[in-house]
Amino acid sequence: MTQLHLFYVFAALVTFCSVMVVGSRNPVTSAVFLVFDLFLLAGIYAMMEAHFVAAIQVLVYAGAIVVLFVFVIMLLNLEQESHGKVRVSIPDIVMMGITGLSFVIIAFLVARVPSMATVGEMTPEAIAAAGGNTYVVGMVLFTKYLWPFELASILILLAMVASIVIAKKDKAAKPGRRRTVNANQ
């Protein structure tokens, strides 16, 4: 089995899982398929020799989907799956048609137009010789993309503040809700 065949297998699985993420009724099923989806994407990255990105994909999204899980568990009970029938209205059908048509057109164009991608300097062999994928990514990030790196910290800071502002109520806002935990000490 060549690399290309393996890619087709992975791509087909990714597509299937993506459809299941959108299509399944139960939000936990969606979340689980999202896990599969991201794991398989990591597999595709690994096949493209982007080892670091593959590892990070698994590492970060593992946590991210746990958030989704917890959110679902917080808001829904097990039995309360939405059993309502999915109603498809005419605008929905039109939108689906347009999306499908664009997909076909894009696929056609991609297949017809000769690939513009060229082999760059950083072939897998060159990366291995330079000291491995992680090392090369690090060197580029800390020299060429210095400013985006520093800005990323501000982005993370913003996310921290935002999550607390949204999720954390001030204690003054709910007096009397604080229970004493010292009962069983």
Binding site: F52, A62, N133
Partner: peptide, 12 residues
């Protein structure tokens, strides 16, 4: 290639 980042990633 990523060494023990693999372990951290998979164990998560």
């Amino acid at each position: 290639d990523v060494g023990f980042l693999f372990i951290l990633a998979v164990s998560s």
